[in-house]
Write a protein that binds this DNA or RNA. Structure first.
Lengths: 351, 351
DNA sequence: AATTTGCAATAAAACGTTTTATCGAGGAAT
DNA sequence: ATTCCTCGATAAAACGTTTTATTGCAAATT
């Protein structure tokens, strides 16, 4: 049991010798309160360390300066950056955020959404687990909603995403032009829309290069075993392309453990540019997603809806940058050796 | 303006043909309500998609199943993992979390704390920006509080941290035993308690090895320049030890850019074991902090306080593991070359 | 048969706010 | 001097809950 409750507006009022209504008026900057009152109230507020009870405030005023945010996994650096940016923007607009993670689980996503609803947020920003997001919204939960990053099955929401197909296609073209004759493409699962779009982009862009797809689950040892077996086959692929951060990390680890040289033995490219990709070997070629921009756009879209803007759901596709690094340097013919020297020439485009 | 408000307990009551009190009783599993009523209420809840309004509930019941969490930076993977674990544990206990980031800024920390207070959480878990945390708590904000990771100036709160000195000392001893004669130790600033403790641990443990300290700010180009200049001097250190993740990443990047071989030209060790440290070169020797365990301990401590456990503030120090990798392999005498072979032998202690 | 007990259900109060309606006082207009 | 505004301040109602006190009714006790 807590000793003393935190001060209420009533205590402020009595200490200032005014009514609670006056205190409320002062705090909310309402019109026509005399300077004298303002001073008295502020003094009392200061002395008591009074802070408004947001919940009670929202309850009565029926206006909620709160937005819900749900992401598949907070430990994913991309999503963490997304949330962090969002939090900052929200605060600037006077909003609070209730952030939850679905931990890559659809059932948990549904549960957390119900939980978010219990907070009665004014709006929602979601990076869905998968395409069936809508079906997991609690019945009758209809607040302005912006989806981000992953593409849902039904387009009834505003959406911000990156142009997966184009970016993945550009990487594929790059590999193709470097002269790699075949490429092993890996991703968690095609059921994740991003992965699917990227795979389709690769297929559309590859010309000379033959393709091969391997789905590896999320933290799935079986899938990783399959991957490793594939690399041990005689007809090992000349290049590989990981379609998301998770598989990039997992597969790169295996490649390193097997003692394969990159790009000498196999070229390596990745969607999602993580910080370690600049450090490892001669650098890993990667697609850099504009996460911050995505968060900004998502918040902007939501703000507009909250301001009452009507109209059809809109979709915004953001362009990705591609960081060419040593891991895809031409060496299909001349194995090993001299790749070190052309190390990371565009290092500084990276700030 | 939203069209239809989400259903209230009153609507549930009228649809079920009972009183609101009965609905509340059913929802909260209160004693003695007939099975008939239970069924009717649940049916109505189902049909309307009713979800309780947490804020109103807390307001009246005066019991808050909400805990505040503040961290210096959400994009730091360590803190993200901390928060993620915490969120899961909280949920298991029926708690919600309001998570904010201070963005490495003391003023912002103070601001966010006031904001957290507006939510009237039952407890608080904080990773403070610096030692002066207490001074930034809003006046009269006294709820059960657990600090984590960083050590405050005054010990009036429960605290969970790692044994920085011992772990850093072990690394120093390792470097010493490997035969490195001098070591450049880098960290953001000694004013961060962790960094200070680690530095002290290093000093206490080093025997043959001479030490040298360099403070590099957080995202501070000046500090990094100083670091780079130091590495260009003729009497370049044989080994270096980065005392936190930020400096480890920044300095390793510079080392790589300068074309220095690790450990051939300089040995490298780090506090904070990040995933890329297994991948880069022959692996980076690092202290692995038990973040999840720290979150668990923090939550446990808070739960107890919330359950009413009284008593003096307690401090728990968790032990760190040390991952010896190639970056500190003995090569002070025999430069370059054969270090590849002893690559990452304890890879599997790492799961 | 009259009273008490026990129990299920509800009406009403309360939580900390904001909003709406009311009030009183001090000028300006009649 | 009376009436009419205006304006600053407040009392009271309301928000969606939970809790407390009250009700009504049937069963159990005299």
């Amino acid at each position: 049991m807590s000793r003393s409750h935190s001060p209420s507006i009533r205590m402020v009022a009595s200490r200032a010798g005014v009514s609670v209504a006056t205190v409320s008026n002062v705090l909310n900057g309402k019109a026509s309160v005399s300077p004298d009152m303002v001073a008295r109230v502020n003094k009392a507020v200061e002395e008591l360390g009074y802070v408004v009870d947001i919940a009670a405030s929202r309850l009565r005023s029926r206006k909620s300066l709160l937005a819900g945010v749900i992401v598949p996994d907070l430990t994913n650096p991309m999503f963490a950056a997304f949330v962090s940016t969002l939090e900052h923007l929200a605060r600037v607009d006077g909003f609070d955020l209730v952030v939850v993670s679905a931990r890559n689980d659809a059932a948990e996503e549904a549960d957390r959404l119900a939980n978010i609803r219990a907070w009665r947020p004014a709006g929602l920003i979601a990076i869905p687990c998968d395409g069936a997001f809508k079906s997991r919204l609690p019945a009758g939960f209809s607040i302005p909603t912006v989806l981000a990053d992953r593409i849902p099955d039904h387009d009834e929401f505003d959406l911000v995403a990156v142009d997966n197909a184009a970016a993945a296609g550009a990487v594929a073209r790059h590999l193709d032009e470097q002269g790699f004759r075949n490429c092993l493409v890996v991703g968690t699962r095609l059921s994740i829309s991003n992965v699917r779009e990227r795979w389709e982009g690769v297929q559309a862009a590859a010309r000379q290069m033959t393709l091969e797809l391997l789905e590896i689950g999320i933290d799935d040892p079986v899938g990783l075993d399959a991957f490793e077996r594939r690399l041990r086959e005689r007809s090992k692929p000349q290049a590989m392309f990981a379609l998301d951060h998770g598989t990039a990390l997992a597969t790169y680890r295996i490649v390193a453990e097997m003692g394969l040289k990159v790009p000498g033995d196999i070229a390596f490219a990745s969607f999602d540019d993580m910080e370690w990709m600049q450090l490892v070997g001669s650098g890993v070629t990667a697609v850099r997603q504009p996460v911050e921009a995505m968060a900004e756009k998502a918040w902007l879209l939501l703000s507009r809806r909250l301001a009452g803007e009507a109209g059809e759901p809109v979709t915004r596709r953001l362009r990705c940058a591609i960081e060419i690094r040593g891991s895809t340097a031409r060496s299909a013919v001349s194995r090993g050796g001299e790749t070190e020297s052309l190390k990371r020439e565009e290092k500084h485009g990276n700030q």
